[in-house]
């Protein structure tokens, strides 16, 4: 509603767009832009392995290529699904290359 929109701050869909983009852009940079030649294939194979575990949603996997102290780190973050009850703590794994 135009009248009420005026008083709202940021539209909700725009922040959703930004969240989605920051995740996918990080993944694509890690897979294509920088780092050693084998990185794209490595990332694809890692994701393919994760995809075999149907309880894990690939939408909950983030990938990042970081430079820390002169070495490159491929960071893979997997949010494991809650298995009720009781909900276990959220675990994440980091794979360093």
């Amino acid at each position: 509603m135009a009248f009420f929109d005026y008083f709202k701050r940021a539209p909700k869909s725009a922040s959703l767009a930004k969240d989605r983009l920051s995740i996918i852009v990080a993944r694509e940079r890690a897979g294509t832009r920088s780092g050693p030649d084998y990185l794209p294939a490595l990332q694809q194979e890692l994701l393919a392995v994760i995809a075999r575990y149907e309880t894990i949603d690939l939408a909950n996997v983030t990938v990042n290529l970081d430079k820390s102290g002169g070495c490159e780190v491929l960071e893979l973050n997997i949010v494991l699904p809650d298995s009720p009850p009781p909900p276990p703590p959220r675990l994440s794994q980091t794979v360093s290359v």
Binding site: R20, I23, I24, R27, Q44, L47, A48, A51, D57, L58, A59, V61
Partner: peptide, 12 residues
């Protein structure tokens, strides 16, 4: 995939 919202599930 972006328009359909499944971009994070693309492997192959």
């Amino acid at each position: 995939d972006l328009v359909m919202g499944c971009e994070r599930r693309v492997v192959y």
